[in-house]
Design a protein around this nucleic acid. Structure first.
Lengths: 347, 347
DNA sequence: TTGTACGCGTTATCAT
DNA sequence: ATGATAACGCGTACAA
């Protein structure tokens, strides 16, 4: 059995409560006993028991992390480890620990989080995604359990503390970058339409084109959740249109890498034949050939701010709803260039 | 305040202990009361409190995950999310939760783990790496606290349950693959020499060359922990040797990608001018140009088996020391080809 | 400034 | 088959 507060008390000739107070650095304990108690702790190799402490305090200093149901793709994307790093740093600063939810299906995850929450395992929860209809979010909201969302809530934007980029504006700027380069035929390759981020980005894209007076073409908008061959056909289709696009806005670097591969197979050169800009600016973006122009969304910060905000909310329940917008910035590399003077049409 | 076992007891007109027994599905409780209690639980929306349960049981059903100190690079490597997925699945099956350690420096991490362990936050620990002198490992070993290591322990191989690949053999096979293709000038680019995996792989490489009767050349062995430009110079140096290698064994796909880039800048073609084989077979390996021949080490399984083994050890302390070797296999793609007939020398 | 006594929500032992 | 009671280790009114 481990050494407890009582053992320390006995050794220091004080009451257990006194030891407890020393641990909490209670002000009105004489320096003399403080010292004596600390020596006893040292001597016995005492370490406070978190579990007992949690039970007494009704607080665990643990934050639950919720991954989306489609964890497979989520895990593979460099986005995940990077937010995690941010969360880790934010949590660490305030001495919080991070706990992961496991579970494959949405239903399993939901159950897991309910256990976590009702079981008192965690003081708060971070939702690492934002999707359109989210039962889990509604559950947390209704119970008024402390949580923050990474991404923009689909509903109740004003009522949910969240950390997000301005994806609408970011994508608008990306499109405008292409427009500035003289492109007119700009296509959009987005991800899962159930994710709010996809919707926001699509909207930004559309807005930019509309403002520039360009028509929105359905055949220029693709949605795939592909990492590997998935989007091959889609890109193929896109590029064999009568009027193929001269510029591509791709919602994710990883997807862009796939697109790059497909394009290469089709003997279409980047950026000579087609320009590409993508999102996230992960490590691979700069290692690809050509290096990708990418919108850096500061993923680490997303995580860091999320942790910070959640902890604030946990520690002060009166903390108001907050919306943190993490800045983005276009990192220009080599995958974009001016539009060809006369835009070729496929025969 | 949440609904407790007592509330349920009151509602069902039984003692709290009876409710507890119903939860545990104790055999000698009449079906009638079982039903009555369950109805009450349902009605009140009762969820057991994990913390209280942990305190009473002296067990948390939580597994602690320890990342290496250089978490930055570790996080960026696709290795991490993939083991994590395996761990997650293994833990989930047995209803265990995963908790991460935070902390930047080795010292911080050490302290964090000690807190976790002594504080009773976790029932066991997974070390996600194996390095040469590991204070933390010694600590766990000496306390006889349940833990497993992903990778081969540097010392006490027989005394520490671990999950690993046969990295020695894997690398030997990789080198033999090159030898079979007629290569004689084979270089090795490894990672951090403090990691046991690096050592094992180096040894396997050397063994293969020695068996083939080829000399070991110091200038053919490089160690870098680079993801980006880091290894640029090293590769440059290697390729401007009087007798540059015709084949490269790279200890990590991500590093290989960097090498590929450098090579491209130097106008050295893969595989025409030089063959490359690397390790891990992560997603990027098949998306690169050319697609990389890579040794698949079944990272997911590494995690899955680690979780399984740890849980066994937690639940049965008499469980003997185990060593789990996860199989590997060479995935042949396009980055290797026959050695050039007459090996060019640089002028 | 310090000690006493109780509660946090469960499980487990010992009765009945 | 079930109930009372004592842990589990700590925090905290309340008392002294």
């Amino acid at each position: 059995m481990a050494v407890t507060i009582k053992d320390v008390a006995k050794m220091a000739n004080v009451a257990p409560s006194t030891v407890s107070r020393v641990i909490a650095n209670h002000p009105r304990i004489s320096d003399k006993t403080k010292k004596r108690v600390r020596e006893a702790m040292e001597h016995l190799g005492y370490h406070p028991n978190f579990i007992a402490r949690s039970l007494a305090n009704q607080s665990t200093r643990v934050i639950g992390l919720v991954m989306p149901g489609s964890a497979g793709v989520f895990f593979q994307n460099p986005f995940f480890p990077t937010v995690l790093q941010g969360l880790s740093e934010g949590a660490d600063e305030k001495q919080y620990a991070l706990q992961l939810t496991t579970g494959k299906t949405d239903e399993e995850i939901y159950e897991g989080v309910v256990q976590m929450v009702q079981g008192g395992r965690v003081d708060g929860v971070v939702l690492l995604y934002s999707k359109v209809e989210d039962k889990l979010m509604m559950y947390l909201k209704e119970r008024a359990f402390p949580f923050v969302m990474v991404g923009k809530p689909f509903k109740f934007v004003e009522e949910i503390t969240h950390v997000d980029n301005d994806n609408f504006r970011a994508t608008k700027e990306a499109a405008e970058h292409m427009l500035d380069l003289g492109h007119e035929r700009i296509a959009f390759i987005g991800g899962d339409l159930n994710l709010v981020v996809t919707i926001e980005r699509l909207l930004g894209y559309e807005k930019a084109l509309r403002e520039a007076g360009h028509p929105l073409r359905d055949d220029y908008i693709i949605h795939e959740e592909f990492l590997r061959e998935g989007g091959r056909e889609a890109v193929n289709e896109l590029m064999t249109l009568k009027e193929p696009p001269t510029a591509l806005i791709v919602a994710d670097d990883l997807m862009a890498l796939g697109v790059l591969n497909t394009l290469d197979d089709m003997n279409i050169r980047v950026p000579e034949d087609i320009s590409i800009i993508s999102f996230n600016n992960v490590l691979m973006a700069e290692m690809s050939k050509p290096p990708l122009t990418s919108v850096d969304i500061n993923i680490f910060d997303l995580g860091y701010q999320a942790a910070k905000s959640l902890i604030q909310k946990i520690e002060d329940p009166k903390e108001p709803i907050k919306r943190v917008i993490v800045p983005h910035q276009i990192i220009k590399r080599c995958s974009c260039t001016n539009a060809p003077k006369q835009q070729k049409k496929n025969p």
